[in-house]
Amino acid sequence: MTNQFVLRHAKRLNGEEIDIVIENGTIAEVTGAGKGRGQQEFDASGMYVSSGWIDLHVHAFPEFDPYGDEIDEIGVKQGVTTIVDAGSCGADRIGDLVANSKKSLTRLFAFLNISRIGLRRVDELSNLEWIDQEKAVTAANRYQDSIVGLKARMSSSVVSGNDVEPLHLAREISAKTTLPLMVHIGSAPPNIEDVLPLLEKHDVVTHFLNGKANNLFDNEGAPLPVFVDAIKRGVHFDVGHGTASFSFKVAETAKQHGIHFDTISTDIYRGNRLNGPVYSMANVLSKFLYLGYSLEEVIQAVTTNAADWLQKPELGRIKVGDQANLTLFTVEDHPVTLTDSEGEKRTASKEIKAKGVVINDRIIEC
């Protein structure tokens, strides 16, 4: 039996109104508003439609505290159809995370923590014996459909006295698996000027707009030479907002110097979802609208840019023949208070709100 419905009067980012016909979970037709035909209709008048939002940095393993949450709570319920868990699990528990994802509506990929214990402790790189290269390689091979990279959290509270040595070991695992690295940057040691030269094209720096002393800009606000060199090498720069890693002032400095984010991600988990300052993907995206980026730039960061990094372009487009993977959202004109990780508040005039997702043959309202 054919299951067919029409998404009516949805707006593309350029304002063009379209109908999208979904048939048995596949996009069957993209046509002018009012022209689509189907057994059922969903009125998307006043809503924008994009390919499904992708969050490149979340924590979706609920057993680990404080950095954990339920997959669908930070996925489809937020308008996000694909999440990438950023190193919650190492080789010891990655199988459990993958098993959890099979029971969820949200599509999940993962960065494998180079520490086999993952975020069971928050100093997971303080003991180099926990970086078991053989176990990491075995896990990467076993779960290759889910694992998209390796995660190393390079800040003082995580590495303890090991400085940059865990990153050298991560580089060795990367060479053995051909997986790129996602590197969390934060307080020194290790110094940011020792971290960035070790990164290669397609590696990811997350938290790149953090306001800590060990950040990517000098005292005058200019980007550090190692930062500029990394951009030229093709290192990918990701927002990773989080509880402590996004500063309005640093983001404004980056914009003034023409430095653009590659992807916008939340670093969301239960605590900063419920209590802020993250709350949701839509809340984080609204901050970049406030900063003066266009709606197209903001949404591309969580659709085409993220899909291209994942090397899964089908997740970043709306195309006949593709599996249905859509996010519906509005941009509402009213004052809204937005808060960064430093506690600084700004009043914006526009707010992005997620309204729903289409996954295969289902519409799920947010």
Rank of each mutant, 00 (worst) to 15 (best):
H260Y: 13
G221V: 02
Q256R: 13
G221K: 10
D229P: 00
E220N: 13
K232R: 15
V205C: 02
A324H: 04
T266W: 03
N275G: 07
E200F: 04
S286R: 09
G276H: 06
F329Y: 11
V320D: 05
N214E: 09
S341N: 10
R233K: 15
V239F: 04
D267R: 00
P223K: 10
T206N: 10
H241V: 05
W309T: 05
V235Y: 08
L285Y: 07
D218Q: 05
A306F: 07
L285K: 01
A230L: 10
L274P: 03
L295M: 13
D267S: 02
V336G: 12
H202S: 15
H334E: 14
P277R: 05
G258S: 11
L310N: 14
K201P: 01
T243I: 10
Q300P: 00
F329C: 04
T330M: 09
V239E: 01
G292K: 06
K249V: 14
L199I: 03
I318E: 05
H207K: 11
T330P: 04
F227W: 12
L295A: 08
L224K: 14
P197W: 02
I231F: 06
L199Q: 02
S341E: 12
E200N: 12
N325C: 06
I268S: 04
N272Q: 05
T339G: 03
G221F: 09
T339C: 13
K255W: 02
D229A: 15
V298W: 03
D322T: 04
G221C: 07
H334Y: 09
N325K: 09
L289F: 07
E200H: 14
T263M: 15
A222H: 14
D322G: 02
V235I: 13
D333Q: 15
A213W: 05
L196F: 14
T206A: 12
H241S: 10
R270F: 06
V331A: 07
E342V: 13
Q311V: 03
A213V: 08
V226H: 02
D267C: 04
L310E: 11
F246L: 13
L274I: 10
V278E: 01
D229M: 07
A301S: 15
T243H: 10
I299H: 03
K319F: 04
M281D: 00
G292H: 09
V205L: 06
K201F: 03
G221I: 03
E332Y: 03
L196A: 10
L198W: 05
Q311L: 02
E297Q: 15
G242H: 04
V235T: 12
K287A: 13
G316C: 11
L216M: 14
L198Y: 06
D229S: 14
S247G: 11
F261L: 13
F246I: 08
N219I: 08
